[in-house]
Design a binder for these strands. Structure first.
Lengths: 178, 178
DNA sequence: ATTAACTGCGACAATTTGCCACATTTACAT
DNA sequence: ATGTAAATGTGGCAAATTGTCGCAGTTAAT
């Protein structure tokens, strides 16, 4: 265990903000903006923590997780995502990612997530039914990930027009609660 | 490894349907409708497979998962997350659940999910996903019945206009397959 | 009798979807 | 390298769906 922190996000400003906030708290940070940079970075540097942005509709974030976990098996990863779909979240957890946060977030939350790690498992179940749009959004992304991102095939399976699916995928998800 | 199958869902009809379908395929099934029943059932019976609905009455299905995994560490659980949240699904996977499916589902999909787990590590479900309209229809009627037929309240919960819900309810359900 | 909540439905505007076409891109075998 | 098949991104326009408002009728409770 060390205090080395890896931050992966294509938003350089975000990297900078998180990085300096963590430095203030005594962590040593390095940042990468994509898969390749991350790969090069860890050739001779083994962070113990990592924050990785998981962009929706793009599995690059997941692949970064996978690569990191292979190279540094005991790394502690938190993934961040603006718009979380159950499918990607589940896949990340299966890979070995520790925690799952939704943007926007702050450093304290990230650190807390890492500390908690295997501490407790309190979960609240949403009793309210999902808004119809949210349900649709979840289903869309689940099937899409089952089809490895193939939009054409997904659209066919969902019984909707490819153009329509494309348009829907460009939209943000709806909030879970009312 | 045996062919004993546990089904936990507060919907007795659902239990019955799944159960008899599995029996036909050579599995021995028992069902439970809540946490307590599940607990009693496994005192002298060790299923190898389990299907668990995450919305069981008051006590969450997660606790059932947790208990099962403690008592029967090598059990293979698939969770059904009708309308559960991301947090719930993630938490379940962390506990050791091997796959999550969204309701409504069928026996073949469940079995496929379980087989895949044993085969390899790759996560990929290949069953016919529900067409989006069909899923919507199911959700609509489920929530409507939870609200005892109150259209106004249902529409509010679903985040859609009452007029729209009315119109949708006047339509026939969509076919399942392509 | 009055109030409040729910329902059914018409009409019109706003939005979404289906559908077609076409230029690119990707993957892969030759 | 070249060809080929599949997938993608995009624009435009007609068709379909949805949001919004209003209003009359029904039901239930006080």
């Amino acid at each position: 265990m060390n205090k080395h922190f890896l931050i992966v996000d294509d938003d350089k400003v975000f990297c900078q903000v998180i990085s300096s906030a963590l430095e203030k708290r005594g962590y040593h940070c390095r940042t990468a903006n994509n898969h390749r940079q991350t790969f090069e970075l860890i050739q001779n540097w083994k962070p113990y923590y990592a924050v990785i942005d998981l962009r929706i509709g793009n599995d690059s974030g997941l692949k970064v997780c996978q690569m990191l976990l292979e190279k540094i098996p005991d790394i502690h990863i938190v993934i961040l995502t603006g718009f979380a779909s159950i499918a990607t979240a589940v896949e990340a957890i299966k890979l070995g990612v520790i925690q799952y946060l939704t943007k926007p977030t702050d450093v304290d939350t990230i650190l807390k997530a890492l500390e908690q790690d295997q501490a407790n498992t309190k979960v609240k179940i949403t009793s309210n039914p999902l808004p119809i749009k949210r349900l649709e959004w979840e289903h869309l992304h689940k099937v899409l990930s089952e089809n490895e991102g193939n939009i054409t095939r997904t659209a066919k399976q969902l019984g909707m027009h490819r153009r329509t699916l494309q348009r829907k995928l460009n939209k943000k998800p709806v909030k879970e609660n009312d």
